[in-house]
Computed example of a mutant assay.
Amino acid sequence: MRGNTRITVHPSFEVLAATTAARLITRLLDVQSERGEATVVLTGGSVGIATLKAVAESPARLAVNWSKVNFWWGDDRFVSADSPDRNHVQAAEALLDHIEVDPARVHVMKPADAGLDVAQAAAEYAEQLAAAALAEHRASDDYDGDAGAPLLPRFDVLLLGIGPDAHIASLFPEMAGIRTKDAAVVSVTNSPKPPPERVSLTLGTINSADEIWLVAAGSDKAGAVALALAGASPVQVPASGANGRSRTRWLVDEDAAAKVPGALIARLDA
């Protein structure tokens, strides 16, 4: 856990979603004021989708130029394009269908009925990331990608949910995905929770984000949150390995924070 980690504990699920939505709108506005466009990586899950709904319902959303926001996904289920299990489908219903987005800036992971297998879908998403990174490189003199590393665009905010087992995106404890270091995107064929096939960003790609926001609610997440903040190994506790380049925010409700020592909360909230 890096020194730029912060935690904010919210009194309820509803307050957590509303506050995270307000924080996201503000962050996008700040980035757009600096660079004209902004990039966010979306997550699924109950809090992730509730946050997007809260963005859609906020009058402040009108201040954001949504046509200049790039959308990526941390992971998605490898099911049919119209499946309600798809993070993309849920995000569209919650937010994307209610704002004026540029379809070319919405980078969707290929579904199971697109004519590719799950490994090919992961490779295709890595190609999308590389193409976006090269476009940024041509447009800017301050591109700072590491030589030999996967080509990645700039992520201003990357949202992550946390499972009760401490998984993030579709990187599960002790499985191959959390151990993968030489790829931007990984395919999952044996997810411990259905559906078994998924496409996910790797931990290295996740950690390329400027800011990572880990959002969790509910008592079933309390153990995972506590272990991650205690610095457990990412192989066993994937959430502990998520660290943004400039900042990592833990945005949790009181139930999810219940097992985190008060002294640690006080230090991280300072």
Rank of each mutant, 00 (worst) to 15 (best):
L229V: 02
D76I: 14
V235G: 12
F13E: 02
A147N: 04
L229N: 01
N87Y: 08
A130C: 07
R249M: 13
A63G: 11
L134F: 10
H107R: 10
L116H: 15
T5K: 14
L201Y: 09
D141Q: 13
G223N: 06
A222P: 02
T20P: 00
H98N: 01
N243Y: 13
S246E: 15
L171M: 09
P59K: 00
L42G: 01
I265P: 02
L201W: 12
P103F: 10
V108H: 07
S233P: 07
L229F: 04
P238I: 01
D97R: 12
H88N: 06
E124Y: 12
D146L: 13
L129N: 01
D102Q: 12
V252R: 05
R23K: 10
E211Q: 14
D97S: 13
T8H: 08
S80H: 15
L229M: 13
R247V: 03
T26R: 10
L96C: 05
G3K: 14
L42I: 01
A257V: 06
A149T: 04
A149F: 11
S233Q: 08
S208D: 14
A22Y: 01
G44C: 00
L159I: 03
A270D: 05
T26G: 13
K53G: 08
S233W: 08
R138C: 06
A184L: 01
W72A: 02
F78T: 01
L268C: 04
L95D: 03
V199W: 10
A18Y: 03
S170V: 02
A38R: 07
A56F: 11
T51I: 12
D269V: 11
G244T: 08
L62R: 05
F172K: 05
A63H: 03
P192F: 05
S240E: 07
W213K: 03
N207D: 06
A258N: 00
F78Y: 15
R77W: 09
